[in-house]
């Protein structure tokens, strides 16, 4: 065991994993966190806590992770390179470990231009690849990047993101291979709708023997409505929502679109279970945490394994 997190145990014991996601509130109200997290109790193996997602100021991912731990749940703290240099990153990682955080997801971060403070100075001292290397260096060498020994080594199960649909498509598996080489233990993907393209991507990864070196969790975001599906297809770079899903949503009356979206998500999860190389799914139900349980239930992923 590298970190001994629940997620690591589930994945290494060969169970099909499911992770959830929680967006911290825009404010200091911890009860919002508790309420959202409660929906995911016993439903997921670990909960991603986003780090000022889309560059909007929110409660710190590490603080929220701690609140989640105090509830007896397991967080996966996201960390971006946008807002911290290597001093702050390493310092936050030591603090995170001391607070009991065992999973960390390494991201470059959305550009600050999209957020609520486009006037800010961004950092990008490291990129996501180098952030993975930093975590691995601290964990496996017991040192900071500067070379000094650590008194108390942080043990992390190291995660990263991948977008199989970004351009250039031919380079995406190579970039994944670089993350594996950098030391990643698990990868969660951007939400997937184009299953054919994803299978092509996974086949390349499997053929190159990559999936033996890390655990791949496929990203699933239920479509709440036809409007959302169209929006995602149009405005999220590299994200393709195939026509057959749009047609299915179009085919039902507006009130039933959410249910249809959930049905699609459930089918996708079932397909993922059959896709070679996929070790689990990452369910990103954005501001829809309360509907996650029914999706997970319908996909036949309950009860979750309890491992020691």
């Amino acid at each position: 065991m590298k970190a001994g997190s629940n997620l690591e145990k589930v994945l290494t014991s060969g169970h099909f994993a499911i992770t959830g996601e929680l967006g911290p509130p825009r404010g200091a109200n911890a009860d919002v966190v508790r309420k959202k997290a409660e929906f995911l109790r016993d439903k997921v193996d670990s909960i991603n806590i986003t780090d000022n997602q889309t560059s909007v100021v929110r409660m710190s991912s590490i603080a929220v992770s701690r609140i989640v731990i105090e509830m007896g749940l397991e967080p996966n703290a996201q960390m971006t390179c946008r807002d911290r240099n290597r001093i702050a990153i390493q310092s936050d990682l030591l603090g995170a470990s001391a607070l009991g955080i065992k999973n960390v997801l390494c991201l470059s971060g959305d550009h600050n231009k999209f957020g609520d403070h486009p006037q800010c100075k961004n950092v990008f001292d490291l990129d996501s690849m180098q952030l993975i290397m930093t975590l691995k260096h601290m964990r496996d060498e017991g040192k900071v990047l500067g070379g000094q020994e650590l008194d108390g080594v942080p043990k992390f199960f190291i995660g990263a993101a991948a977008n199989p649909f970004g351009d250039p498509f031919d380079f995406r598996v190579t970039r994944l291979a670089k993350k594996v080489e950098a030391g990643v233990d698990f990868v969660q993907t951007q939400c997937i709708y184009n299953m054919d393209k994803f299978r092509t991507f996974m086949k390349q990864a499997v053929d190159q023997g990559l999936t033996e070196k890390f655990h791949m969790l496929a990203g699933i975001t239920p479509l709440k409505s036809l409007g959302m599906a169209r929006y995602m297809a149009k405005f999220v770079p590299g994200l393709e929502v195939p026509d057959y899903y749009l047609k299915r949503l179009q085919g039902v009356e507006k009130k039933k679109q959410a249910d249809e979206g959930i049905k699609i998500a459930v089918e996708q999860i079932q397909e993922m279970k059959e896709t070679p190389g996929v070790a689990g799914v990452h369910l990103m139900a954005i501001e829809w945490e309360h509907r996650s349980p029914e999706i997970i239930e319908a996909a036949g992923l309950l009860p979750r394994p309890k491992l020691d």
């Binding site: 959305d110 550009h111 999209f114 996501s128 970004g166 351009d167 250039p168 670089k178 770079p237 590299g238």
Partner: peptide, 29 residues
């Protein structure tokens, strides 16, 4: 690169353009 990435392209690269704006060519492409 909008994020000064040294191991790009990030997941936002789309059709040769940067996720930040259509006016910016993704240098990683």
């Amino acid at each position: 690169c909008s994020k000064s990435l040294m191991n790009g392209p990030c997941g936002g690269s789309s059709g040769g353009k940067c996720e930040v704006s259509n006016e910016i060519d993704c240098v990683w492409q």
